[in-house]
Computed example of a mutant assay.
Amino acid sequence: MLNEVENSAATPRPPLIGTPRPRCAGSRAKRVLDIVLAAVLLIVFLPLMVVIGLAVAMSSSGPVVFRQTRVGLGERPFTMLKFRTMHRHASERPVDLAQADNHAGITGVDPFLAKPRHDPRITAVGRLLRKASLDELPQLVNVLRGDMSLVGPRPCPGGEHMRLSPEDRAKRVSVKPGLTGLWQVSGRSTITAEKAIQLDLQYIEDWRLPLDLLILLRTLPAVLRTRHAW
């Protein structure tokens, strides 16, 4: 089932304006899964999150939890949580990320995904957290709040969201953004922006609860491999 979705996402998408409301947007089963599983995961990972919080606090000055405004359901902004992985005031020290990667001998950074391999603003602890995706654990709180779902399109900052076509923007915000998704288990940081968007849209169109469960099952191996993460 997952392979079928991935393969079909490689074909051009038809116009999306005026399409029916996605099934996952109002699914009670999806929301129940989010609440139950997010609560269980928070309890299981709480000791690890405490250790991570201490490591972040001791490694560099600044808040332990980083807060950033992202675009959510219906284009409503919400505050996304994650463990801080950059030095304090990193946003005030902009760097050319593509140039930073070029200096490290790396090419092909996609500005939409904003996932360069070499960013001098990232702390040593932050680099490890990103490699294992542990910086995303606080987003389980976002899931419980109802800002996000466990599975869905990744939430974009406003600037990245507005670079999408009107059709793609409308489709992506017709559902809650997710902590993980189809493109995260299909290549993580090596996937192109175009393919990532196509996979997000295909997930929305073809959603059914077993697909969420399959993506969740594939998320753990994808995280543990860390081969395509930075």
Rank of each mutant, 00 (worst) to 15 (best):
V109N: 02
P111K: 06
R76Q: 15
R130A: 02
M58E: 07
L128R: 12
L113F: 08
L113E: 11
A55Y: 04
I122E: 08
K131E: 05
R93H: 14
A98G: 04
V56M: 06
K131T: 10
I122W: 12
L48E: 02
M86I: 03
L134R: 00
V95F: 05
A98L: 08
R76F: 05
T69K: 13
G126E: 03
M58G: 14
S61L: 08
K82H: 05
L97S: 12
P138D: 03
F78S: 00
R84P: 11
L73S: 07
L134P: 03
P116V: 06
P63V: 11
A132F: 14
K131M: 02
M58I: 10
Q68W: 08
M80C: 12
G62R: 06
T123R: 01
E75N: 13
P111A: 08
L113I: 14
R88C: 12
R84E: 04
I122R: 10
P77R: 07
K115Q: 13
G74Q: 07
D96M: 01
T69S: 15
L129K: 14
D110W: 02
G108D: 10
R84W: 07
R93T: 12
V50M: 10
V65A: 04
G105F: 01
T85V: 04
V56D: 02
V56C: 10
H89K: 06
L129R: 01
F66I: 01
L48A: 09
R127H: 10
M86F: 04
L54M: 15
I106Q: 06
L140G: 07
L128G: 09
L129C: 09
P77Y: 15
L128S: 03
V50T: 09
R88S: 13
A124T: 09
V95M: 00
G126D: 12
A90T: 06
Q99W: 08
V65D: 05
P138A: 09
D96L: 11
L97W: 02
G74D: 13
Q99A: 15
F66K: 00
